[in-house]
Design a protein around this nucleic acid. Structure first.
Lengths: 251, 251
DNA sequence: TTACTTAGTTGCTCTGTGGCACTAAGTTAG
DNA sequence: CTAACTTAGTGCCACAGAGCAACTAAGTAA
C-alpha cells in the first residue's frame, strides 16, 4: 500500500515507525548422521510460563539481532556455532514461513536454514548445551510434537534434503574431510533410505569429478579402501539432470 | 540469546517490545512470455525524495500488512492481484533475503516469490498500473539497474525457474488452459533458451501423465494440432530424475 | 591354508533419450 | 487438380547410464 500517491517526507517517516512490524526469527535444522541414522539437533524451550511452548523441544533459533547480525545467513551461522561449535558446515536456506498465527506473541516470520555437519566426535561440544540433543528421524519426522510450527519446518527441510541428495553431492558434507567411496555411498543410502548400486554409484561420482584420491588407504579387518577428499571442498556438485543428460556441460 | 536463563514474564514482555524488529516485505517476480520471450513485470518506485530509490524500477512488492495479510503467501497473492488482476497463477517461494544494508531505512528482510502467468491478453489489466510494465529478460537480467537488491533477487528467481524447468512441468503455467504440444515445447525452449528434440519431448510429456487431449484441434494454415489440457491443473509434475529413474513412484 | 569380509571391476541387459528421417494433414499458389 | 510449403506427429537406430550379478582383490582371523 504505497503505490503512486505522493507521500511527504514526514508522512513516510511516520508510516515506517507506526506500521506494525512482524517478529523476525531464524531457525536452523542441523542434520548429522549418528549410529547409521539421520539425526537432527533440537533444543528445549525455556521452562517458563511466560514463554510460548515452555519446555517443549524446538529447532535451534531465535530472533534476528539487528545489532549483531549483518544478514540472515550470518545469523544462522551464529546460532549454529552456539549450539554445535561447528564453524563451516554446509548451510542452505530452505525458505521462510510467516503468518499471524504461528507465534502466540504476534505476527511472525521465520527464515529457515538447514546445515549438514560431519558426525560429531563428542555428543555436543558447544558451549551451553545441557538443553540440546540429537534425535533420530523416522518417517520424515521426530517422535514428539515440536514447538511452534517447527514440525512443519523440519519436514520441509528433510524433504529438501532428500530431494536434493538425488542429484547433488550433499551427503559428502556429512563426512569428515577424508572418506572412502563406501562411506560416501553409505551416507547417500542413509539419507535416501534405500540401497544404491555400487558400480553405478562409483561411475556417477567419478564422472562428476567430485573427489580425488589422497595417498592413503583405510585399513581394517578386510581389504583396505582408498581414501578420497572433495576436489572443491566448499562447492556442491550437481549430477546431470533429466532432459539433456548429454555431457556434463550445463552451466 | 534466550537460552535457559529463566526470564520473568515482565522481562520477557519488555524484551519483545524493546527489541528492534527488522522491516518485513514481500516481493514478487512475475514471469510471463510475450512475443516469444520471457518477460518480468516491474513497477516504478514513487518519485519522492523521501523514499529510497525514487522513480527507479523495482519488483512489485512492499511491506507485510500485519492487519490484512494472514500469511506470507496470501500477501504475495495480494500484491500479484493488485498488479495483474490474475487470481490463481503458479506461485512459489524463492527464498528470503535480509540484511542491515539492503534497505536504507534499516535492517530489512524480504520474502521473494515468483509467479507464472499466461500471456496476458491486454498489456496490463490490473487496477492502478500506470507505473507497471513488462521487461524482457536478457542474459538472466533486465537491462537497467533495479532498486534495492532487486537485481539479485530477480536473478535468483530466474535461476530457480530455469533450473526447475529442466525437470518439472512449470512452463505449462505460462500457457492458457488449452494448448498444443508444440505450444508447450515452445515455452520450454523460451525459458531454457535452447531447442529441444520434438520426439523426446513428447515421450517425456506423455510418459508423465501431464496432459490429456481435449476433443478439439487448433487449425491454421497447416496441419491442425491436437489440443491438450493439464490433467491436474494446479499441480506441478516432476519428471523422473537421475539416480533412480525406476517409475515415477517418488513421493 | 582356509574362511570371511569388504573393496573394487567387468560384462550383460534394459530403458530413456538424442538425433534424424520419415509420414500426415492441412493451406496456398499455380 | 496438383505441387509446394508448413507444421504435426511417428518410427527407428545408437548410445549412455542404471540395474543386476558375478567376478577378482586384499586384507584379517581361526
Amino acid at each position: 500500500m504505497k503505490q503512486k500517491k505522493p507521500v511527504t517526507p514526514a508522512a513516510a517517516g511516520f508510516d515506517l515507525q507506526s506500521v506494525q512490524r512482524p517478529l523476525t526469527t531464524v531457525d536452523v535444522v542441523i542434520f548429522s548422521v549418528l549410529e547409521g541414522r539421520l539425526h537432527v539437533l533440537l533444543v528445549t524451550r525455556p521452562d517458563d510460563a511466560s514463554e510460548p511452548f515452555p519446555a517443549m523441544w524446538a529447532l535451534p533459533g531465535g530472533f534476528v539481532d539487528v545489532k549483531k547480525d549483518l544478514d540472515l545467513e550470518s545469523c544462522a551461522l551464529r546460532k549454529l556455532q552456539q549450539k554445535t561449535g561447528v564453524k563451516t558446515p554446509y548451510l542452505e536456506q530452505v525458505g521462510s514461513w510467516g503468518s499471524s498465527k504461528r507465534d502466540p506473541r504476534g505476527w511472525s516470520a521465520t527464515h529457515v536454514y538447514f546445515a549438514l555437519i560431519p558426525t560429531p566426535a563428542q555428543p555436543l561440544q558447544g558451549s551451553n548445551n545441557s538443553n540440546a540433543a540429537w534425535f533420530p528421524l523416522e518417517e520424515q519426522r521426530v517422535r514428539m510434537k515440536l514447538a511452534f510450527d517447527h514440525g512443519k519446518l523440519l519436514e520441509a527441510a528433510i524433504q529438501r534434503l532428500r530431494n536434493k541428495v538425488e542429484y547433488t553431492s550433499l551427503p559428502a558434507f556429512l563426512l569428515p574431510e577424508e572418506f572412502t567411496l563406501s562411506d560416501l555411498q553409505r551416507m547417500y543410502e542413509i539419507v535416501l533410505e534405500r540401497p544404491l548400486e555400487k558400480s553405478a554409484f562409483r561411475t556417477r561420482v567419478f564422472g562428476a569429478d567430485l573427489v580425488e584420491p589422497v595417498d592413503k588407504v583405510r585399513s581394517g579387518p578386510n581389504r583396505p579402501a582408498q581414501l578420497y577428499r572433495l576436489i572443491h571442498p566448499h562447492e556442491i556438485v550437481y549430477f546431470p539432470r533429466t532432459f539433456s543428460p548429454r555431457k556434463g556441460s550445463e552451466d
